[in-house]
């Protein structure tokens, strides 16, 4: 699982530019799928055909990043943010472009709170002409992907959001031998810029049930906003976030299945932020939705932290739900 996650994290893909990660996932799931398709907005849809309910699992492939927006005479690159960039957590980070050009993103002043407007990428170019040989306006950069083990089963790195969700689905696809329900594993695009990819794919699938897999916040680090979710406390079953009130009847059923099978889980009410569940809920005539989340500290930074023990619980729960819902 750790190796799978690492492989997926290394295949970068900012929102709208998910080609590499999509290829990486296809490579993983190809021997296990009944059907693999992509749609007009780049979503990857992996099917395991069955007779029962139409269930759509959804994890997003895209990650936050930057577009090169302007190259000045000295060869420094101004950027515009893709998704929920927090300038504080990305200042002084190593970045890499879609073409493998490395650089650093730095603020003009290290004395003030950084703002993205006052930050630039330095790729070591001596002037504009040299920079333009490596980077074009519109090329995307991401903070350099990395993953390191800490004490116990904790890991830091990026982008766990949401390659950990993708890895859970890939693992579930491998583990589910026979599908009792009609299963659609969707690896969605453009979640970080408004849950956009999951909207059209929900319309084309029109699932009975939609379950997103994504990261969620935690409340157990110093200064964290109050939240009753702990890193290492188990995966979560989502009840509400800023974008969705999950279907109570589905939530109850998920808890019942988790309890019966001794899955370690936490009840999640996330005050800020959302996930693809909100898009799935309001497609067509609507669907029953919830999410399984992986508690993650320091989301959208270069040191996102997760606990692999929570990931294991999420895989178990996903596999159970696929056949028991």
């Amino acid at each position: 699982m750790v190796e799978l996650l690492k492989r997926l994290m290394l295949a970068s893909g900012a929102s709208g530019r998910e080609d590499k990660i999509r290829q990486a996932i296809i490579k993983e799931v190809e021997p296990y799928a009944d059907e693999i398709t992509t749609d007009n907005v780049g979503n990857l849809i992996v099917r395991k055909k069955g007779e029962g309910k139409k269930i759509m699992f959804c994890a997003h492939m895209d990650e936050i990043g930057f577009f090169a927006s302007y190259i000045d005479e000295s060869g420094y690159i101004k950027v515009s943010g893709i998704g929920g960039i927090n300038p504080v957590s990305c200042a002084f980070s190593e970045v890499v472009s879609e073409n493998g050009v490395y650089g650093v993103i730095v603020p003009e002043s290290s004395k003030e709170m950084p703002k993205l407007d006052n930050m630039y990428i330095d790729i070591g170019a001596k002037n504009k002409k040299q920079a333009e040989k490596s980077v074009k306006i519109g090329d995307y950069f991401v903070c350099v992907p990395k993953m390191r083990k800490l004490l116990g089963t904790k890991y830091v790195g990026r982008p766990f959001d949401d390659r950990v969700g993708c890895a859970i689905l890939v693992e579930a696809i491998k583990q589910i031998k026979e599908a009792k329900n009609d299963l659609y594993f969707v690896f969605s695009t453009q979640e970080e810029v408004g849950g956009r990819g999951s909207k059209p794919v929900s319309y084309s699938i029109m699932p009975d049930i939609g379950i997103a897999l994504d990261v969620t916040g935690t409340g157990d680090k110093p200064g964290a906003s109050p939240m009753a979710v702990k890193l290492g406390g188990g995966c979560t079953i989502k009840i509400k976030d800023a974008g969705v009130i999950c279907s109570p009847t589905l939530v109850n059923k998920m808890r019942e299945i988790a309890d019966e099978n001794k899955i370690k889980y936490q009840n999640e009410v996330l005050l800020y932020g959302g996930t693809d569940a909100s898009s799935i809920q309001v497609a067509g005539t609507g669907a029953y939705v919830s999410a399984i989340s992986i508690p993650s500290a320091f989301i959208h930074s270069g040191v996102e932290m997760i606990d692999m023990a929570d990931v294991k619980e999420a895989v178990k729960l996903t596999v159970l739900l696929a056949n028991k819902l």
Partner: peptide, 16 residues
Amino acid sequence: MVTDIKKDGFLSVVNI
């Protein structure tokens, strides 16, 4: 909606 059960038995909530 209940967001936490505090140690002294009070409930914290979020608006719906």
